[in-house]
Amino acid sequence: MLSKHQSCKAFVISVAALSLAACGGSDDEPNVADTATFTLAISDAPVDEADAVIACFSAIELVGNGDGQQTFVIGESDNTLASNDVCKDSDGETIPNTYGVDLMSYTGSDALDLVAGVEVAAGTYGQLRLVMSEGSYVQVGEQQIPLQVPSNELKFDSITLDAGGNAAYTVEFDLRQALVNPVGQDVYFLKPRGVRLVNNLEVGHVEGSIAEALLIENSCSVAPSDTTEPVAAVYLYEGSDLEITALADVGGAETHQPYAVAAVYFDNVSAYTFSVGYVAAGDYSAAWTCQTDDDPEADDDITFQGIVDVSVSGDETVTTVDISG
């Protein structure tokens, strides 16, 4: 089942609930006081140099809580998304029980459910794992460059699911930080840096714009004929009233490391907009620059033209940021 839905105009891929029964649990009807509904989502902030980032998902694992490891396999366990034929092995054969998706196709609050509407035992789980398969790749022009994930797993720390509760989490892929193409290697790596797990009740979304006059004043590109090319970038940092000189780029060594990075695009009319989805509630500083190239493996010399404070509320509320001076 492939579904898209709009919610607060941010950006997501939704991966929904997991079931103990889906992996051969008890046939008895669970006691609602001992169970919780769990929803896991994946969302994306796109990267500039790629035309597509195809990620191949094969399973979700919940580890701990006294029940051992619970594994929910794509296309096999109940309530999971049917597998597709996107993910191929080295012989060009479709890898079974996988779903391949272009992360860059799901921005804003569009959602793709991998598993949905299932109950699991309530309690604290020591680890959540998103299992990847072979076949992931990055599309650059006509070339498909392999995408590798360490151990083919993304591992996240402990989560607690309250009895009778309805928990929803999102795995946020900030590809500008997580996607690495080492010099001299014909491969991309998806690194844990820039990939974070957030509780949807405790996050909001940031949408903003930069005034064209401000871009012109700072010698940024404006009104590009190719609207897929960014004209600027916005870096979000935890904390307010931060000094620009203390802000690091991706891979930089300054005091404050970026929480997320978003490109600024021309809408082919008059606006220059950016968005950052699934931001943990709190106070932030948003710094912007005309420089759109930032090597995640290097300490680049990024000049920020300005900075504004941003306060993000929870419950997926949208915070609007207008950078005009």
Rank of each mutant, 00 (worst) to 15 (best):
residue 247 L to I: 06
residue 275 S to T: 14
residue 254 E to A: 12
residue 279 V to Y: 01
residue 280 A to T: 12
residue 281 A to M: 13
residue 274 F to L: 07
residue 273 T to Q: 14
residue 277 G to F: 07
residue 264 V to C: 04
residue 257 Q to M: 07
residue 247 L to Q: 05
residue 284 Y to G: 13
residue 251 G to Q: 02
residue 252 G to D: 04
residue 268 N to A: 15
residue 252 G to E: 03
residue 283 D to Y: 03
residue 275 S to C: 11
residue 284 Y to V: 09
residue 281 A to C: 11
residue 257 Q to Y: 00
residue 250 V to C: 09
residue 259 Y to F: 12
residue 262 A to N: 01
residue 270 S to I: 14
residue 281 A to S: 15
residue 248 A to W: 00
residue 255 T to I: 06
residue 279 V to D: 12
residue 258 P to W: 03
residue 280 A to K: 01
residue 265 Y to P: 09
residue 279 V to E: 07
residue 264 V to I: 02
residue 254 E to T: 10
residue 278 Y to R: 00
residue 273 T to V: 13
residue 255 T to W: 01
residue 252 G to Q: 00
residue 253 A to G: 03
residue 277 G to R: 07
residue 252 G to Y: 05
residue 263 A to K: 07
residue 276 V to W: 05
residue 282 G to W: 11
residue 259 Y to E: 15
residue 257 Q to K: 11
residue 264 V to G: 00
residue 279 V to I: 10
residue 274 F to R: 02
residue 260 A to D: 13
residue 255 T to S: 11
residue 283 D to M: 04
residue 249 D to C: 14
residue 272 Y to C: 01
residue 278 Y to G: 15
residue 251 G to E: 04
residue 267 D to A: 13
residue 284 Y to W: 10
residue 266 F to I: 09
residue 249 D to W: 00
residue 257 Q to C: 03
residue 278 Y to I: 10
residue 259 Y to A: 05
residue 267 D to S: 12
residue 247 L to R: 01
residue 263 A to W: 00
residue 269 V to C: 07
residue 266 F to L: 13
residue 251 G to P: 06
residue 279 V to H: 06
residue 250 V to G: 02
residue 249 D to G: 14
residue 259 Y to L: 04
residue 257 Q to W: 04
residue 258 P to D: 08
residue 259 Y to D: 09
residue 255 T to H: 05
residue 274 F to A: 06
residue 279 V to Q: 05
residue 266 F to Q: 10
residue 263 A to F: 11
residue 280 A to E: 08
residue 268 N to D: 15
residue 254 E to H: 08
residue 262 A to S: 09
residue 281 A to F: 14
residue 272 Y to I: 08
residue 274 F to S: 09
residue 268 N to S: 15
residue 252 G to H: 06
residue 284 Y to K: 11
residue 282 G to M: 06
residue 268 N to T: 13
residue 270 S to T: 15
residue 253 A to R: 02
residue 272 Y to W: 08
residue 284 Y to M: 14
residue 284 Y to Q: 11
residue 251 G to H: 06
residue 265 Y to K: 09
residue 258 P to R: 01
residue 263 A to R: 07
residue 276 V to C: 09
residue 265 Y to S: 10
residue 267 D to I: 11
residue 281 A to Q: 15
residue 276 V to F: 09
residue 261 V to H: 05
residue 265 Y to M: 13
residue 259 Y to C: 08
residue 260 A to V: 00
residue 249 D to E: 08
residue 282 G to S: 03
residue 248 A to E: 00
residue 259 Y to K: 03
residue 263 A to V: 00
residue 257 Q to H: 04
residue 283 D to A: 09
residue 259 Y to Q: 09
residue 258 P to E: 03
residue 271 A to T: 15
residue 276 V to A: 02
residue 276 V to D: 14
residue 281 A to H: 09
residue 271 A to L: 12
residue 254 E to L: 13
residue 260 A to G: 05
residue 282 G to L: 06
residue 283 D to V: 11
residue 273 T to C: 12
residue 276 V to S: 08
residue 271 A to K: 07
residue 255 T to D: 13
residue 258 P to L: 01
residue 254 E to Q: 12
residue 249 D to I: 07
residue 249 D to Q: 07
residue 248 A to F: 08
residue 281 A to R: 08
residue 247 L to C: 01
residue 277 G to V: 12
residue 251 G to C: 05
residue 262 A to L: 01
residue 263 A to H: 14
residue 269 V to H: 02
residue 269 V to G: 12
residue 252 G to I: 03
residue 267 D to V: 13
residue 268 N to K: 12
residue 283 D to F: 05
residue 254 E to N: 14
residue 251 G to I: 05
residue 283 D to G: 12
residue 256 H to V: 07
residue 265 Y to W: 10
residue 249 D to T: 13
residue 253 A to H: 04
